[in-house]
Design a protein around this nucleic acid. Structure first.
Lengths: 242, 242
DNA sequence: CCATTTATAGTCGGGATGACTATTAGTCAG
DNA sequence: CTGACTAATAGTCATCCCGACTATAAATGG
């Protein structure tokens, strides 16, 4: 029997606890992931999610923020989304020893962080759809992160976490299209977003030319809302969602 | 630096890893939680979520199933929903030592499990809305479980996990009303559920009188679908969702 | 100055949903 | 037996959301 009351009477096995980060961003219209190349066995030469041990005096969340700063160089977490995904604890997931990992998903706007800011190993942005098999169970973690982000786009304002502080509705739409892998109708997307109170608010006078061509677009910033009601559902493909 | 590559070179702190279970059921039209009374400090005499250590050779999921069986006496997990919630790892959450807990939410149909089936301490069903302050951070875990279940009712078929194998639409509606704490319009609920392919399927000839009074209701069982498209949103209260 | 590109405005029909009303089929009290 | 009461089921109706589409505006580059 293993009741938590029995700390003194019953043995328990200590585990190593780590965090693993699925750091996602949108670069040049593609979804990209921050990965590090492993130098040692097991899985030497393979790509892996950045991560590390949880220190004795910090929570998994704090460890995740710390690792994120170490790998990307981000110093202020403002406008940056970090969210716990789930915990992976299969006994054999690390061949060396028993490691329980708390996985996080992090979302960054495009231009920032030239990565490798600190002493950390060379972290690299790779295209999400081009990552080969990763080390450990990181394929699974990354897939779960993608699923979660895709689902949360439907019913939260999460998409703005991929955007710089000011953005056009076209850029916001690109977030949805890229993560979901589906084209969306522009006028309908616009109508929906603007009809959701608190999703975005227009920056008064400003306008930006997306790349030079076409009519200049109005600039928006994230509004105060966090949830979308009703949700912005992706085109019906029948039966999704975990 | 705390790279996972440095197992041999860098120290890490071993943690105790536990699972905690928010076991929910619907009894007599109320949401109830399975709790155990603590006999020892800290929090002696307080109610706590059932849980225990993860054993060396099992995953957190396996530990959760084992604990669930120990506390409730359920032997087959069929028609029983167990889902990982998130992991709580704040350094001070257990005053005795560093304990990282992986929390789960479990959903059971009403009549089963007279609880305390085995050797475990006296597990008791308590009304969800009447639980006092719980031990450790279990209030938070329980609240998170309730939020999660409420949200998943909107876009999954999870509600059937609270129902016996065969149930009436009235009973299914009661699940929604009890968890959400909102009354729903009966004809509209019915229309919505029946219009969602795979949510429920009718049991051919059967009918049951809910309690004796009123017109007998047709019996249904859970269909093959897991997701609801479009979702069954709760009455607009503006701004929910985590 | 015309083709191209992108943003924005607006239209139209169908479907889902909220608010109701009506009917059916039982139990229970007298 | 009969009439209240209860609960399930059927149906109506207006509104709003949404997908599909057309049209216009404002910029660029030949």
């Amino acid at each position: 029997m293993t009741s938590p009351e029995g700390y003194d009477k019953y043995a328990f096995e200590p585990f190593a606890v780590t965090v693993d980060l699925a750091v996602l961003t949108l670069r040049a219209g593609t979804l990209q992931v921050l990965l590090v190349e492993r130098g040692q066995e097991p899985y030497a030469g393979r790509w892996a999610l950045p991560g590390g041990f949880v220190l004795p005096d910090e929570s998994a969340e704090e460890a995740a923020w710390r690792e994120l700063a170490e790998e990307t160089g981000v110093t202020d977490g403002s406008g940056l989304h970090l969210e716990q995904l789930r915990t992976y604890s299969e006994p054999g997931r690390d061949p060396r020893m028993r490691v329980v990992t708390v996985a996080f998903a992090a979302l960054l706007p495009d231009p920032p962080v030239p990565h490798g800011g600190g002493d950390a190993a060379q972290a690299q942005w790779l295209r999400f759809d081009a990552v080969g098999p990763l080390a450990f169970d990181h394929d699974r973690i990354l897939a779960d992160a993608h699923d979660r982000v895709g689902a949360k786009l439907e019913y939260t304002c999460l998409a703005t976490a991929f955007c710089p502080p000011e953005f056009t509705l076209g850029e916001l739409q690109q977030v949805y299209e890229t993560v979901w892998g589906t084209p969306l109708d522009r006028p309908n997307f616009r109508r929906k977003v603007l009809a959701t109170p608190g999703f975005v608010e227009q920056v008064p006078g400003a306008a930006r030319l997306t790349g030079g061509r076409g009519k200049p677009a109005a600039l928006y910033r994230a509004g105060g809302a966090t949830a979308l009601h009703p949700p912005l559902l992706r085109p019906t493909t029948e039966g999704r969602h975990r």
